[in-house]
């Protein structure tokens, strides 16, 4: 620690390399995950079980894209070209979770993204609220105001579906399939890259803290589906975390990236001819 506890980083120029590089990577991961999550929400605008749920998906998709744009634009100061990031990367350079690579085929699977994944992202964003990196500190509160409604939406639907045995079984499968990806996303325990961000006060806590906060949010329902165990305030995963094929750099498992259709939508390929100069 070279900074006193109350000093803040006014811009990227103030950040040591050991902090700037991983912070840029974190922002890129947040941006890509939000962009792809927005596409997954958008897939359900017309196919949700109720008209109201479709409208909610539309609103959530729009939020995610707004948030993604904020993060992409911030990356300019980290040496990236935001326009190239948004419109020109191949799938192998995306840093979104593998669970967002392709469309999901059922409403319970979409709820798994809404409840587990969207919450995981928001927990990580919450840990930037008190960031000593001022440009982030001044952006994330509005974004989190909006995310509260995403959690309420997921929570409401999951409560409702837990009431019937068939729906509960479908939720168990869907949340179970997304569970490991969420646990991994916060990074391995004692990860030195996450630790550097935490030590610098740029992120308020390491990977274990983030994972625990996420479990606090999702633990009660997850325990009813045998994914978590413990009690309120002290939930742990009922499953061992599987770190095989985990890429710390891309914060995802497996090679590859968004499928062809998702990539075209993420980059706006079909919109290019309409873009005005």
């Amino acid at each position: 620690m070279t900074q006193s506890s109350d000093a803040s980083f006014k811009s990227t120029a103030d950040l040591p390399d050991s902090v700037g590089q991983p912070l840029g990577a974190l922002l890129l991961s947040l941006a890509d995950n939000k962009r792809l999550l927005g596409i997954r929400y958008a897939d359900w605008i017309l196919g949700a079980p109720t008209v109201e749920a479709g409208i909610a998906c539309s609103a959530m998709a729009q939020d995610e894209w707004g948030h993604a744009r904020i993060f992409y634009s911030m990356l300019k100061d980290f040496g990236y070209d935001p326009a190239a990031l948004e419109h020109e990367r191949p799938a192998s350079e995306y840093h979104n979770s593998e669970i967002l690579d392709a469309d999901v085929s059922s409403w319970p699977e979409l709820l798994a993204l809404n409840f587990l994944w969207d919450t995981a992202i928001s927990v990580q964003v919450e840990m930037l609220v008190d960031s000593r990196f001022e440009p982030i500190h001044y952006k994330v509160r509005k974004l989190l105001d909006e995310e509260r409604f995403h959690f309420d939406h997921a929570h409401g639907w999951i409560s409702r579906m837990m009431a019937t045995e068939d729906a509960r079984a479908a939720l168990r499968d869907a949340l179970g399939a997304a569970w490991n990806a969420c646990l991994c996303w916060f990074g391995p325990e004692n990860d030195d890259v996450v630790g550097a961000l935490s030590d610098a006060g740029v992120v308020s806590g390491g990977s274990e803290t983030a994972r625990s906060r996420w479990l606090e949010r999702v633990g009660r329902f997850a325990s009813e589906l045998d994914l978590a165990e413990g009690s309120e305030g002290a939930w742990t995963s009922a499953r061992e975390v599987d770190w095989s094929d985990w890429s710390r750099e891309r914060r995802r498992r497996t090679e590859g990236g968004p499928d062809e259709d998702s990539l075209a939508r993420a980059r706006g390929d079909r919109n290019r001819s309409l873009l005005m100069d």
Partner: peptide, 9 residues
Amino acid sequence: LTYTSTACP
């Protein structure tokens, strides 16, 4: 300027 939502179209 600020906006009513981050995704304000």
